Amino acid sequence: MQPEKIQLGQILNCANNSESDNVVWVSDTADLVDTYCFMDDNKRPYNISECVEVAKLNTSILSLDGFEVEYMMVPLYKRMILEAADAYDICMSVIASPKFGIKSFSQEWDSETKKQLLGSIDHELGTKEEPLVIRLFMASSRTFRKKRDTQFNVDNKEIQDYYNMTVFPKFVWVCEISSKALYENQQVLGEIIIDATSSPDAKMDSIIIVNYPYALCRRMPEDFLKASEACFEEVKEWKPYDIFRGNLTDCQSL
C-alpha cells in the first residue's frame, strides 16, 4: 500500500551522527501506512483491514480487524540473517554518515539540479521542511537487478554498467531515497543496497551500493570490512528513476 501524497513529511524521524553532529530529517513511508493485507483462516483470503490506535487503560494499543496487536512476525528465507530493524539502523547510519550520507552531496547541487529533484530551491534536502523520503524493502537480487536493468537501460546506462559489474548476494535490503516532489511521481533520486545475508555485527560493512545523483559507491566481496576505505565514483549522466515494484502486487485486484 502506498501512503497518500499529502501525508509525506507529517511523521519525521531523525538520523544523526554523534561524531560529526550531522542531522538528517527523514520521512519513512512505512510510518504512513496503516492498511494491511493478511490471511485469516476464518475469513476470505487476502483480507484488507486498517490498523488503528485505540486507547485502553491509560495507554494505547494497536487494533487490527478487531484484534489487539502485540507482535507482528514476518517469516524470512533461511539464508536471510539481517532483520528489518537492523537493516533500517544501518541505512540510517549511512544517511547520517559524513562520508556516505547524501547531505554532503546535495549541498554541491546547482540550482537547476535542486529544482529538478526537490521541486524548489527554498530548502536543503534533509531538513524538516524538505525531509528525505525513504522506503525500505527486501528483494531477491535476481528480481531486483532484472527490474533495475530494464529501468537503467533507458536513461542511466552508466549506472546500469556499475550494477552489472557488482556482485550481489541472493537477497538484499534496499532503502530507496526520494524527495516529496519526486515521490509524488513515484520516482527516486537514489538508493542504499545492503547485504541481507550478512551479520548484523557487520553494520556499515554490509553496504553493497550507495547510489546518489551523479555519484555511486560500490563494494565487492573482497572489500569486506573495508567500508571506510570505499570511494564514490563520478556518474556523468544521471536521471531520476522509478520506484521498484517488482515484489509488490496490488491486493485490491486479487
Rank of each mutant, 00 (worst) to 15 (best):
V26G: 14
M92C: 03
S27N: 09
D155Y: 14
K5M: 10
L12Y: 10
Y212A: 02
R135T: 02
E50N: 14
F105C: 13
M80L: 07
K180V: 04
V154C: 03
K239V: 08
K103N: 04
C217F: 06
V33A: 15
Y214E: 01
I121R: 07
Y71W: 14
K78N: 12
M72G: 14
S63D: 09
K114V: 06
W173C: 03
A227K: 00
I11M: 07
Y46L: 09
C251E: 08
D31S: 12
P213F: 05
M204E: 15
I194S: 06
N17T: 12
M80P: 01
V188S: 11
K99C: 13
F67S: 09
L216G: 05
I177C: 04
S111K: 03
S179W: 14
Y36C: 07
L216R: 05
K180E: 07
L12C: 06
Y77E: 07
E70I: 08
K180I: 06
E129G: 00
S106W: 08
D122E: 04
V188N: 05
A139M: 03
C37F: 13
M138A: 06
M92S: 05
K115G: 00
C51L: 02
Q107L: 03
D21T: 11
C217K: 02
F137G: 07
I192Y: 15
W109S: 15
S93Y: 12
K115V: 01
C175P: 02
Q186C: 15
D122P: 08
E233L: 08
E50K: 11
C231H: 15
Q116V: 03
V133G: 13
Y46T: 07
K170S: 03
G246E: 11
I61L: 10
D31E: 08
D149V: 00
D223C: 00
S253W: 09
I90K: 00
A230M: 10
D155S: 04
L136Y: 11
L254H: 13
M204S: 14
C251R: 02
P131I: 01
K147N: 10
E222D: 10
D205F: 12
N17L: 09
F232S: 14
L82M: 07
T127R: 11
E108Q: 02
G9S: 12
